[in-house]
Simulated scan of single mutants.
Amino acid sequence: MNEPTGQSSPGSARILVVDDDALVAMSMVSLLEDLGHSVVEATSGAQALAIIQGDAAIDLVITDQSMPGMSGTELARAVFLLRPSLPVMLATGYREVPEGSELRLPQLMKPYDDEAVGKAVTQVLSRTEPR
Rank of each mutant, 00 (worst) to 15 (best):
L23W: 09
V61P: 05
I58F: 01
T5H: 08
E41F: 06
D20G: 15
A42N: 06
T92C: 05
A57I: 09
A13P: 00
Q123L: 10
S66A: 06
M26Q: 11
E102V: 10
L31Q: 10
T92L: 04
L16I: 08
T43Y: 08
E115M: 12
M1L: 11
S27M: 11
L49E: 05
I58W: 02
S66N: 11
V40F: 03
P98D: 09
A91C: 15
L31R: 08
E3M: 06
V97E: 01
L60M: 14
S27D: 13
S12H: 08
E41D: 13
R83L: 07
T73Y: 02
D34C: 12
V117L: 08
P84G: 15
P111Y: 01
A78G: 09
G45L: 02
M67R: 04
G100C: 07
E102L: 10
R83D: 15
R77M: 08
P98E: 07
A56W: 10
A25R: 09
V40K: 09
S27W: 02
L49G: 03
V29D: 13
S66G: 11
G69T: 04
P98Y: 14
L105N: 05
T63H: 02
P4W: 01
L35S: 06
V88N: 03
T128Q: 11
A57W: 13
A120Y: 01
P84K: 15
Y94R: 07
S38P: 02
L60Q: 01
E96R: 15
A48W: 00
Q123Y: 13
P130T: 07
V88Y: 03
T43I: 10
R95V: 13
E3Q: 15
A76R: 03
A46T: 15
M28Q: 09
V88I: 07
E129T: 14
P84Y: 02
P106L: 07
D59M: 05
A57F: 08
P4I: 02
E102Q: 07
E129M: 14
E3S: 06
E74T: 10
M67N: 00
Q65A: 00
D59H: 10
E33S: 00
E33C: 02
L31K: 04
E33L: 02
E129Y: 12
L82E: 12
V61W: 03
P87H: 12
Y94S: 04
L75M: 05
E115Y: 02
M28T: 12
P84H: 14
D113G: 12
S8Y: 00
D64G: 06
S85G: 15
L105I: 05
A46M: 11
V17E: 05
D19C: 06
R95M: 13
V40G: 03
F80S: 13
E96F: 14
A22R: 13
L125T: 04
Q53V: 13
P130F: 08
S27R: 12
R104P: 01
V40N: 09
V18C: 08
V61S: 05
E96Q: 13
G11W: 04
S38Q: 12
D19V: 02
T122D: 10
R127W: 07
R83M: 09
A56C: 06
R95G: 11
L108T: 06
H37D: 05
M70D: 07
I52N: 06
T128Y: 02
S126A: 14
R77C: 01
P4V: 05
P98A: 05
I51H: 15
R77E: 14
E3I: 14
R95I: 09
S101Q: 12
S27N: 15
V88S: 01
L105K: 07
S44L: 05
